[in-house]
Simulated scan of single mutants.
Amino acid sequence: MKDRMPNNIRWNHVKPPFLGDDAMTVVIDLARYGLEEQEEEIWVEGDSGSTVVSSIPFCIDGLALFDRIELNPDAGVLSILGRSGRGVFRVLVDQRIDTGEKWKLASRLSDFFIGSELAHEWNGEGFVSVDIPSLGAASEVQNGILDFKNVYWEWGVACENP
């Protein structure tokens, strides 16, 4: 596995509870995604022929939960072999607002995603990636996010599932 780059930022994921014994983490260099000196450690499951992404990516554009990938962990790169059809919606809470307001907004966002029965994962103070399993969920989230102020959002990968 690739050694950590000196003086860089690493995005880490909590181990998902559904993983089996063959789960492992791999570190992906984010330079090819425009994030120099940053890397993301994602959970995967399976052997090298059918490795499946088990994290909701924070920074890796075009990659979603349950996509099948081929890894070159020594080089910190991956190739997508098959899409799961799921999407990734990313939200950043404006870091310039008061800390108390930031926490209230993060709590409201979590309640919104939980109420929509969407898996999501927070990283740090105010950055969340959301698993979007269907086009209906995509529409609900994209319309619902408009009710929130002081947030920025983007699609990491569009949902393709009906």
Rank of each mutant, 00 (worst) to 15 (best):
E39S: 07
E125C: 08
S50M: 01
G100F: 15
G49D: 13
L81Y: 11
V128M: 04
I60S: 04
A106D: 02
R90K: 01
D111M: 00
F89R: 05
G82A: 14
R96Y: 09
S54Q: 13
A137I: 04
R96H: 04
Q95P: 06
G126H: 06
I97R: 09
I97W: 02
S110G: 09
S50W: 00
L81E: 12
I97C: 04
D67H: 13
D94Q: 14
F112W: 11
F112K: 05
F113R: 11
D47L: 11
S55N: 08
Q38L: 07
S116F: 01
G46T: 07
R90H: 03
P73D: 02
E117I: 04
L71T: 01
G76V: 02
E40C: 09
A137E: 03
E36C: 06
G87Q: 04
D98C: 01
D74A: 13
F112S: 06
S110C: 08
A64M: 07
D61T: 14
D74I: 09
G85C: 06
G115I: 11
L30Q: 05
S116Q: 13
G82L: 08
F112T: 00
S110D: 14
H120C: 11
L30N: 05
A64C: 09
D111G: 08
I56T: 01
P73Y: 12
H120K: 09
R96N: 11
I132T: 08
V52M: 10
C59W: 02
P133K: 01
I80H: 06
S110I: 05
G136L: 00
F66N: 13
V93I: 07
L92T: 07
S107H: 14
L78P: 07
V128S: 10
R108E: 12
I42L: 15
A137F: 08
L81S: 03
L118N: 02
F113D: 01
Y33T: 06
R68L: 00
G87R: 03
L135N: 12
D67C: 12
A64H: 09
L65Q: 01
R83M: 11
